[in-house]
Design a protein around this nucleic acid. Structure first.
Lengths: 199, 199
DNA sequence: TCGAACTTAACGAACGTTCAGAAAGCCACT
DNA sequence: AGTGGCTTTCTGAACGTTCGTTAAGTTCGA
């Protein structure tokens, strides 16, 4: 196999395994046998396990940076941009379970350095977009918290999705991305309408 | 040491370690040496590692069930109850990092059985409370999603808290529980006001 | 003194990692 | 076109360590 292909294939295999089981629960032998190769060969492509983990995290996030940037530049009208962002972000988090699990894992486990990487490679651009669309008349703290709530409520929906069938009155259908998108968009329009009337 | 004390002490030690590093990254020897005892003695109190993990999860969640139940019964006026719930839940998630990490870990990693446990022991009662306070005139799906958003936005804030200092215009002060509580309560009042006017 | 709490010592298995060498791709030269 | 040699990719086999777990024996409180 061509070298670059093998390297990428390893990263995608290990990404799936790490997302499912966590870094320390997945051995080099696990990754190797999932790839149909010998563990020793992994050490030809990566210095050691820590290197493989870091490269895998970087690979998973790098893959998502481009689509997010494209989405942000696709639409120009503010209201549409926010709706579009919500739609894309919900679909990204609920659709790609590997990416979502890496994101949460890094948020919960990451040290300062890894959090800094995460902030700049994945979340900074969406954050700037949402923050820029917030009501400019609000104080800075209010605007910042509103942005966190916006991103946070989408993260929260993705996080709670697997739990919904176990809650009273819930079933898996409520985790449908379209339902979530519509609901959040509607709630946002309500809040905006209320804002206009009370100010 | 008294038997029940030792058992509880083990559970609290392992809870801290598991929350920090994940289940599979913490060995029985790690737990034992953090307790100042021999790994073999752990097997006098717990059948095996899997048993210790399950008991630890149950212990962490059981500890939090009582305070949540108390909180739910403390206040009677609906608006106050919701505010009070938000305040308590925000403080619970941002204040007790061990509990929060267990919660997220189980949400992300748990199989169906563990998710079912989690739903019933921790999240069902808050869910019923918030759900019961939602506008009764709304269709069932809308009410359910609104409840998920309510719990989700708090989870999202707790999840994003460590990232805030790394985002543009952000600093750790924005993760202050009082700020978050006030912000969410205010946003909710806005939405409610908008609801009354548009219906 | 009896049973619960704990230690010492060890087991086989799995771990991350290394290294010498086999297989395979590539490129110049005849 | 074929062949020799060089580099890259990969394997086989092993290393020392750590893992979960067990058995037998010791300490100690009731």
């Amino acid at each position: 196999m061509h070298p670059a292909d093998t390297r990428t294939a390893i990263l995608e295999t290990s990404a799936r395994l790490y997302a499912d089981l966590g870094y320390s629960a997945v051995s080099m032998r696990d990754v190797a046998s999932a790839m149909g190769m010998t563990p020793a060969n992994l050490y030809h492509h990566f210095k050691n396990k820590d290197d493989l983990v870091r490269e895998t995290v970087a690979h998973v996030f790098a893959e998502k940076t481009e689509p997010i940037a494209e989405m942000l530049e696709a639409e120009s009208r503010d209201a549409d941009r926010l709706d579009l962002f919500i739609d894309h972000f919900v679909r990204l988090l609920t659709g790609d379970r590997v990416f979502f699990r890496f994101l949460v894992r890094e948020l919960v486990d990451g040290d300062e350095g890894r959090l800094d990487d995460l902030a700049h490679t994945v979340l900074e651009r969406p954050f700037r977009l949402v923050s820029g669309l917030a009501d400019i008349r609000q104080p800075e703290e209010e605007r910042f918290l509103a942005t966190v709530s916006m991103i946070g409520v989408i993260l929260g929906h993705a996080l709670l999705a697997p739990l919904l069938p176990h809650l009273p009155g819930g079933h898996a259908g409520f985790a449908d991305p379209t339902s979530i998108t519509n609901h959040i968009s509607a709630a946002l329009r309500h809040a905006a309408a209320s804002d206009l009337e009370t100010k």
